[in-house]
Amino acid sequence: MLVETREISVLGKEDCGIVDITEMVSKEVKSSKIRNGTVTVFCVGSTGAVSTMEFEPNLSKDVSETLDKLIPLDKDYHHHKIWGDYNGGSHLRALLVGPSFMVPFVEKRPTLGTWQQIVCINFDRLERTRKIVLQIIGEF
């Protein structure tokens, strides 16, 4: 079994900036020595997340609006008392979506559905460059 670790970076807008990273992840899998296996996609940072979705503008709005109802950003969270950065809701949103997930790939192609893209979401109150670690594991 082989293991390769790679890093990519993306710029995410503040308050639910969703970025399609499918091609970036696919490119790293394709350029690896590994032919069949899995790629773990991990967003470094406690106010960022990764997932899959149909990446299109209206669904991105739906995601943002739904999260606004579930976890409003203007609420006075206890976290704000510690740091004063008013991103308690950002942390909760990232916790809900999660920092990582795994995608199997066959013959160097991620096994994603037709309307399924890999996305990185920046939940912070500021625009951020997000570092994403890819751990590619499998056989040659």
Results as ranks from 00 to 15, higher is better:
residue 116 Q to F: 01
residue 26 S to H: 08
residue 94 A to H: 05
residue 44 V to D: 11
residue 131 K to G: 01
residue 43 C to S: 15
residue 14 E to N: 04
residue 62 D to C: 12
residue 7 E to F: 12
residue 34 I to L: 03
residue 38 T to Q: 01
residue 16 C to H: 07
residue 51 S to D: 06
residue 84 G to A: 06
residue 22 T to E: 00
residue 65 E to H: 12
residue 80 H to S: 15
residue 87 N to Q: 11
residue 137 I to D: 13
residue 70 L to I: 15
residue 60 S to A: 15
residue 70 L to E: 14
residue 23 E to Q: 11
residue 96 L to H: 02
residue 72 P to H: 11
residue 107 E to A: 09
residue 13 K to P: 07
residue 79 H to G: 03
residue 45 G to W: 02
residue 8 I to T: 06
residue 2 L to K: 13
residue 91 H to R: 05
residue 69 K to N: 07
residue 113 G to K: 05
residue 93 R to G: 15
residue 69 K to D: 12
residue 43 C to A: 15
residue 137 I to N: 10
residue 44 V to C: 05
residue 129 T to E: 04
residue 115 W to E: 00
residue 67 L to G: 14
residue 76 D to G: 05
residue 31 S to F: 14
residue 69 K to A: 11
residue 69 K to Q: 10
residue 57 P to D: 11
residue 96 L to A: 14
residue 70 L to V: 15
residue 55 F to M: 08
residue 1 M to S: 10
residue 49 A to M: 11
residue 46 S to D: 08
residue 76 D to Y: 04
residue 140 F to P: 01
residue 75 K to D: 11
residue 123 F to S: 11
residue 64 S to E: 10
residue 113 G to W: 03
residue 136 I to G: 01
residue 42 F to M: 12
residue 109 R to S: 12
residue 18 I to R: 02
residue 99 P to H: 15
residue 44 V to R: 09
residue 121 I to F: 08
residue 42 F to Q: 11
residue 132 I to E: 02
residue 44 V to Q: 09
residue 116 Q to T: 06
residue 27 K to Y: 14
residue 62 D to E: 11
residue 26 S to N: 04
residue 17 G to T: 02
residue 77 Y to L: 08
residue 82 I to Q: 13
residue 58 N to Q: 09
residue 5 T to H: 13
residue 71 I to L: 15
residue 68 D to E: 14
residue 85 D to M: 03
residue 3 V to F: 02
residue 82 I to S: 06
residue 68 D to G: 10
residue 4 E to T: 05
residue 76 D to N: 13
residue 110 P to Q: 01
residue 113 G to L: 03
residue 66 T to V: 13
residue 26 S to D: 10
residue 36 N to A: 05
residue 125 R to K: 06
residue 59 L to W: 04
residue 55 F to R: 06
residue 72 P to Q: 02
residue 135 Q to T: 14
residue 70 L to K: 13
residue 15 D to G: 05
